[in-house]
Amino acid sequence: MSNQNESLNVSAKTVDEAIEQGLNQLGLTRDEVDVEIINEGKRTLFGLKSGEAIVRLTPKGQTATSPSEADPLPTDEAVSQEPAPSEPDELDSSEPDESAEETLPVEAQVSEEDDPSQIAEIGKEYLGGLLERMGIKATITTRVAPDLVEPDESPPLVLDITGRDLGILIGRRNETLQALQYMVRLMVNKEMGSWQRIVVDVESYRSRRRHSLHQMAKRMAERAVANGERVVLEAMPAYERRLIHIALRDHPAVFTRSIGHDKNRKVTIIPK
């Protein structure tokens, strides 16, 4: 990996400050870099800015952040995920390639011979046991959820947790919910001896999140086209990036790439 001419992310109170700091660090002038504004910093009611502004500076003439160098694209998950099909995938995206979702691996589907109601019962019991030991009072309902996947994918079994003050179960960047889902999948898979497509949700958070990511993808695509510049989204987990890729796969004027590594991996929307 080359560090020399990699692009640089800088955060500061304002966009201008961030750019200036970045230029100082790079020892370059404004004309010598491409600037992408990743986050403008939040605006409060009175026009005061709070939250950090983040910009990315890429030395011109460099393709440091081009997908080819960042890593060979659509094998997004391959970096961090095992090919072993018997292990539960991190998330809803069960395929190693987040943009090629045409064929769903067999192991990602609820296998025909297993009784879905039995899986639901086992999952519910495990999840209930975990929540109880976490000191959380909640109700678990089960449903099959075609709204959580693309129309051509087999719908997962969802264990939806409902109750009061369950925000802590979602956690920062959805981390807690993912951990909960991961543990439940491990437990159920072990019990059933096969891979089951199970989703753990809190108050239908996933379908709401799915919807808002979809809307955001469209908005950002419009911005990319209007400005003729690529838009870099904030870092997201693999299955959320996948949703963005899918949302824009048929867009006539943009294409998408993921850049960066691991937790810093981001979708870039690029005008065609």
Partner: peptide, 20 residues
């Protein structure tokens, strides 16, 4: 777990639980 995923998931849930 692979890349510490099982241990990390356990830590996340324990952290959430203790944070209450």
């Amino acid at each position: 777990g692979k890349e510490g995923r099982v241990a990390n998931a356990m830590r996340t849930l324990l952290r959430t639980s203790a944070a209450k």
